[in-house]
Design a binder for these strands. Structure first.
Length: 887
RNA sequence: GCCCGGAUGGUGGAAUGGUAGACACGCAGGACUUAAAAUCCUGUGACCAUAACGGUUGUGCGGGUUCAAGUCCCGCUCCGGGUACCA
């Protein structure tokens, strides 16, 4: 029978849909459960590209396999549908973003269904649906009403926060201020990049070197905007320790650890000469205090103005202005040439009471530590560079552990920077009573930190790179904050019962010129009056796209519940997510934010697990071939012709190099899954996506490769659908061995997400079966089951042709029998000094001695051994024989 | 610069420290066909050699550990991703 994939695929997709084959079981008594999740997509107008089906196919195979293994499987799909493109389109055309979004979702849903993925479509969710974002807003209320108890390392309801009496005495305003300062969500000014042309806040990476916006080329400016922020750094420690139990790729854990950026050190207070202020610095090297010869504060530091003396004001102000104009990248670029100005003021070094000058420089950042540093040029490369440029003193306080005496001399004289370990010198002062001379780094840090703490001059301190999360956008198409700002300055949140707060319908979606969200123009929606006549305005910022994706896995558990965020019993059954697959581009942000929310919900008793995603896997990017000339000029794929495996320019005939690059319109190398499905069918697309290589690596799409798996499916179908090939009676032992081998191999490979080798094992079996020409009906049925997670349409069709009337989706996964896998003989590779020379077939039961004797009796061994006597003979049973000959 | 990942035939890739190149693409030859496509069969790392057998070499580069290294260790080169002076 010919392999008519179009007909087969249409037929079974309809069957699955009509019969709701993949509806999640309601019976929660089955102890075997598996929650398998894809990172849900943003439904762009461009439709699916071949990168999407990679992860989706992987989870689909895993889901189908787990069902056959008797698991209750939860495998849902939905849309992360808030986002800029729909809003931009609305600005241009006036079409409401929900219309665009729904159209895009329809396209995505159709395309995904055409791939035969076994989602439970009854659980589809959409982050832009008010029934969904009602609960996103609900979580925001929780964040706002939670504080972090550092002692218990746990989030707690704000009602449990004790306000100190000293604050209480200061009155209502101070109490509110205190409470607000402890909430996980707070409202504050934040300095952000603003593009006046696009009327949008830009991220650092969107701002180019020359200070222009990468999207429009216009100059951006720094703007202070009122923003919602989330105190994620409070959870830094929990986010770090949570990794321990998780089955995540080590590299991803490492990237998140680096992002959180824990560092230990000390905070040290410096008093300021002539002012009743102190300057606190964070340092990882309190041991180098004696080497601190100047200080630097960030231009944005709140004390900069106070510290600057009259005669220096002009210079400092000029410098601050210049800094504000630079993009962050610019600031770092100029870092090669460090810049800074003297404030005219001096600080007192607490260890020796020496006066050291205070400078302002943009290499010190406000966002990290305390925004001020003590500079130790002799032992910090940045400080060394800066001191060199501005002729500041360099005091070496550590005799370096270095063998090179010339280098040692340079370091001691302050002509070279030393950041490694060594023995302290010049590090004592009788007047303050501290002496660490002779100690090494570790001991020095300990001693001086203790000394600082005993004198109340500083304390040990852990610092994180992780910063507060800027959690608002000046956009229309996002979740509205359930927040009202009253005329008297009070901020209140809507009551739970008032949710969801809908987005108003508008005619114009353009943001305001001043950085205000388009919502500021929705007068009817915006202005509110309470029952006492007090006037207020709703929050006009909306939440970032992260909000919806931070918790969607929880809603899938009980997506239609309109009474609660989800049913706790069902949550307890399904959580945590057992397998989570998505692109590595979300390695840090999405996963970190999502873990943070989850931990807050856990602390509040809303979810039952501390971590959301037990096992994580990142699929690699799919690239495509592209072509370039000898000189490296890129040639669009439609201008390239292939002859005898080589590539030539269609016009001038010059030979081109095949390279691997990202798919892009300009290179004309974008692959659309619809084209592949049309030509080869969904099963072939699925199979090729998996056969290309390991799931986690970056790999190029090759249309020719699809032909390979298409050929395999065609051969398989023709062979197993032909009654002449299916016989009764005993199975051929070789076929039986092959069959049980493939069951075992595919099973192990699916568990380890190594689908490429599973497919090649199936190819090997098919090659064997076709060579034999005949298999039993039982073998055919078993192989059909093994193939079914990979090529489900074809497998259902074969299953049907084999006389079955029900779907095979819930058939039991075949069990392999080790007995059939046993070999009688093993073909030993025999090597001499590690070089393989020949093979010899011997019974597996042979002892080492028997093996050696059998090999020595072989003519070929005599040839390689010659007259020499082996000094050693290594026999690894059923693996290798190696003769060691010394010459 | 730093962090993470990678480098194996013409191509994608396979290989618990134990026969490097499974499986597939491509290519070459053959069968079928008036012909092509499709399908099927055979060969295919490179080099040397042959009537045939065979041999040498080979996993980015240089060292090392080991009876044995694509795999482990040290030092590099190049490529991809992330990040931007993190005190």
């Amino acid at each position: 029978m010919e392999y008519n994939f179009h007909e087969i695929e249409k037929k079974w997709q309809k069957y699955w849909e009509d019969n709701k084959t993949f509806k999640t079981p309601d019976d929660l008594t089955n102890p075997k459960k598996c929650y398998i999740l894809d990172m849900f997509p943003y439904p762009s107008g461009a439709g699916l590209h071949v990168g999407h089906p990679e992860g989706y196919t992987a989870t689909d195979i895993y889901s189908r396999y787990k069902r056959m293994k008797g698991f209750n499987v939860l495998h849902p799909m939905g849309w992360d549908a808030f986002g800029l493109p729909a809003e931009q389109y609305a600005i241009q055309t006036g079409t409401h973003p929900s219309v665009t979004t729904n159209n895009n979702c329809d396209t995505f849903r159709r395309q995904i269904k055409e791939l035969g993925l076994s989602y439970d479509w009854d659980r589809e969710i959409n982050t832009t649906d008010p029934k969904y974002f009602k609960w996103t807003q609900w979580i925001f209320l929780r964040l706002y009403n939670t504080w972090f108890d550092e002692g218990l390392q746990k989030g707690r309801p704000i009602s449990e926060l004790k306000v100190p009496d000293t604050i209480r005495q200061l009155g209502k305003n101070e109490i509110i201020k205190y409470i607000d300062s402890r909430r996980l969500a707070y409202y504050d000014n934040a300095l952000v990049w603003w593009c006046p042309n696009c009327r949008i806040v830009c991220s650092n990476e969107e701002v180019l070197n020359d200070g222009t916006h990468e999207k429009c080329g216009n100059r951006v400016e720094k703007k202070n905007l009122k923003q919602w922020m989330l105190r994620i750094p409070l959870y830094a420690e929990r986010l770090l320790t949570g990794f321990d139990k998780l089955e995540w790729p080590e590299g991803i854990k490492e990237m998140q650890r680096n992002w959180i950026g824990r560092s230990t050190g000390a905070e040290v207070d410096f008093s300021i000469d002539g002012l009743n202020e102190k300057l606190t610095v964070f340092t990882t090297r309190p041991d180098t205090l004696f080497g601190a010869t100047y200080m630097v504060i960030a231009p944005e530091h709140q004390l900069t103005e106070v510290i600057t003396t009259g005669d220096r004001k002009e210079d400092v102000e000029k410098y601050i202005k210049a800094t504000l104009l630079k993009s962050d990248l610019d600031r770092t670029d100029l870092a090669k040439e460090k810049s800074g100005v003297f404030t005219g003021r001096y600080a007192v070094n607490p260890v020796n009471k020496k006066l050291i000058p205070i400078w302002v420089a943009d290499y010190v950042l406000t966002g990290y530590g305390t925004g001020a540093i003590m500079a130790v040029p002799a032992h910090d490369t940045r400080d060394f560079e800066f001191a060199g440029k501005f002729s500041l003193p360099i005091a070496c306080i550590q005799d370096p552990d270095v063998a090179d005496t010339e280098q040692e001399k340079r370091i001691l004289e302050g002509n070279e920077c030393w950041t490694e370990d060594g023995k302290y010198i010049n590090s004592s002062d009788p007047s303050t009573g501290i002496d660490i001379n002779g100690l090494n780094k570790e001991a020095g840090i300990q001693k001086i930190t203790k000394w600082l703490e005993s004198r109340n001059l500083g304390k040990a301190k852990v610092n994180y790179k992780l910063r507060d999360w800027l959690f608002s956008r000046q956009r229309y198409w996002g979740e509205p904050f359930p927040v009202i700002h009253w005329e008297d300055g009070e901020i209140t949140l809507l009551d739970e019962k008032e949710l969801p707060l809908h987005l108003p319908v508008m005619e114009k979606y353009l943001p305001g010129e001043t950085g205000e969200s388009p919502l500021a123009n929705a007068d009817n929606w915006l202005n509110v009056t309470d029952n006492k006549g007090r006037k207020g305005r709703r929050e006009t910022n909306t939440m970032p796209q992260w909000a919806g994706s931070c918790w969607y896995y929880l809603r899938f558990i009980d997506p239609k519940n309109d009474k609660m965020i989800f049913d706790p019993g069902q949550e307890k059954y399904w959580m945590p997510v057992d397998l989570y697959i998505g692109g590595a581009e979300h390695a840090v942000l999405h996963l970190l934010y999502s873990r943070f929310w989850h931990k807050v919900l856990y602390d509040l008793g809303i979810v039952s697990t501390d971590e959301p995603y037990q096992r994580l896997f990142n699929q690699g990017m799919i690239l495509a071939f592209a072509y370039e000339t000898e000189s490296g000029m890129k040639i669009p794929a439609d201008q390239v012709v292939e002859r005898e495996g080589k590539h030539y320019h269609i016009e001038n005939g010059s030979e081109l190099r095949q390279i691997v690059a990202k798919m892009s319109k300009s290179l004309k190398n974008v692959v659309n899954p619809d084209d592949v499905t049309l030509k080869y069918g969904a099963d072939s697309l699925r199979l090729y996506e998996m056969f290309m290589g390991p799931l986690d690596i970056t790999k190029p799409w090759d249309d020719k490769g699809v032909k390979g798996v298409f050929g395999f499916l065609g051969r398989a179908f023709r062979f197993f659908s032909d009654p002449e090939n299916i016989v009764r009676g005993e199975e051929d032992p070789e076929v039986l061995k092959g069959l049980h081998h493939v069951i075992k191999k595919v099973e192990g490979d699916i568990e380890n997400l190594r689908f490429n080798t599973a497919i090649s094992a199936m190819m090997i079996f098919l090659n064997l079966a076709t060579k034999k020409g005949k298999v039993t009906g039982e073998t055919a049925a078993t192989f059909t089951k093994v193939l079914s997670p990979f090529a489900p349409h074809m497998a259902e069709e074969l299953w049907h042709l084999q006389g079955n009337t029900k779907t095979l989706a819930y058939e039991q996964w075949p069990r392999y029998n080790e007995e059939f896998l046993k070999e009688d003989n093993f073909e030993y590779p025999v090597s001499f000094n590690g070089k393989m020379r020949f093979n010899i077939l011997l019974p597996v039961s042979f002892t080492k001695e028997e093996v050696v004797n059998a090999v020595l009796a072989d003519e070929r061994a005599k040839k390689w051994l010659g007259s020499a006597t082996p000094s050693n003979i290594i026999v690894v049973p059923n693996r290798i024989v190696n003769f060691v000959i010394k010459n």
